[in-house]
């Protein structure tokens, strides 16, 4: 087991190195951080720009391989370099990943819980009214892309607040910095309402989980062991909960573990639309700002998170399913 994990870790390290190097090279060769300084009024002298860009390791006059070497040396020592305007990428990363975590964790958990419950119910009541309603609902929700859903929710809230004459539900930002203590905590929760709804019910939340849970549950329902459990004298309900659901939970739990593993990487659309300054928003902003080092850092960080998430989901399968455990 230890040996296996080590080998897997080594492969993952190589993958991360390749992925982030590729991203760096791509960003460094195509992006133009100079543009941000050239268009200024009054014009900044070329020498000053060069000096600034040199300091941030962003000067396109330096050969790209040399820049890459500087960047790679930094990364190995744990320094992702500077953003286009000289701030520390590390600090930005450290701040933003927790913004994303705060934004996503609640929605991810709720989406899984609601989805699994609805999916299991749906399977047990196959072809009955409840099943059809859930089925239609999840279909419609899955057809609504998250940027449409989030925008719709924001429009609805805007109109609601206008109708009420005061702000009942916040629809932009993470919190109101003017408040403090418990008030600020409540304010933070209020700001979470809309993003959490849009994250938890949408195509990657409850709608998605309810579909896979329903399918898995239907597979399991036809199997002999559910019949055995009933033959022992268990009620249908108990047999379904204790034997069928427990077994059918394994696949959805793996998806869930994977998505928990990636909460730090953020949600691009939700962050942009509700104006949270998390990792997802950073990715878009740094592409638009020609911010080479930030782009590379986001890539490296995302790769690490994805690999960590897939390891996490594998471990969870092993924990839940005795059949795949190494004896």
């Amino acid at each position: 087991m230890g040996k296996y994990l080590l080998r897997r870790l080594a492969i993952n390290v190589i993958l991360v190195v390749i992925a982030s190097s590729l991203a760096y090279m791509l960003a460094a060769t195509t992006m133009n951080p100079r543009a941000a300084y050239q268009g200024r009024q009054p014009p900044v002298p070329e020498a000053v720009i060069d000096k600034t860009l040199d300091a941030y390791n962003l000067n396109d006059k330096t050969p790209v391989l040399q820049r890459y070497a500087t960047w790679a040396t930094g990364v190995v020592t744990g320094d992702f370099g500077k953003t286009w305007n000289g701030a520390s990428v590390n600090d930005e990363l450290g701040r933003r990943m927790f913004v994303s975590l705060r934004l996503l964790i609640l929605g991810t958990l709720l989406g899984f819980a609601i989805g699994v419950a609805l999916g299991a119910y749906s399977a047990v009541k196959q072809y009955k009214f409840g099943d059809r309603l859930i089925g239609v609902g999840s279909f419609v929700l899955m057809a609504i892309p998250v940027f449409v859903l989030a925008t719709l929710l924001a429009i609805a809230t805007y109109n609601l607040n206008r109708g009420l004459g005061f702000t009942l539900i916040e629809y932009t930002g993470e919190y109101n910095p003017k408040l403090s203590g418990f008030d600020q905590f409540l304010n933070r929760l209020n700001h979470l309402i809309l993003p959490t709804i849009s994250l938890s019910i949408g195509g990657s939340g409850a709608a998605f989980y309810s579909r896979i849970q329903r399918n898995m549950m239907l597979d399991v329902l036809g199997q002999d062991f559910v019949r055995t459990a009933m033959a022992k004298g268990l009620r249908r309900r108990t047999a379904l909960m204790k034997h069928a659901l427990r077994t059918a939970l394994i696949p959805s739990a793996t998806y869930f573990a994977f998505s928990v593993g990636t909460v730090f990487t953020g949600a691009i659309f939700t962050e942009k639309i509700y104006n949270w300054h998390g990792m997802g928003a950073w990715l878009v902003d740094s592409i638009n700002a020609n911010d080479v080092n930030s782009v590379a850092a986001v890539t490296a960080f995302t790769a690490v998170c994805i690999l960590f998430a897939s390891l996490l989901s594998d471990l969870l399968v092993a924990a839940l399913d005795p059949r795949v455990r190494v004896s």
């Binding site: 199997q223 002999d224 062991f225 019949r227 055995t228 459990a229 033959a231 004298g233 034997h243 427990r246 077994t247 394994i250 839940l320 399913d321 005795p322 059949r323």
Partner: peptide
């Protein structure tokens, strides 16, 4: 309790987990 049943395929008849 009064009637028990033994199924054909004992692998699928036990809950795997």
């Amino acid at each position: 309790k009064s009637i028990s049943m033994i199924f054909q395929d004992p692998l699928s008849a036990f809950t795997p987990v």
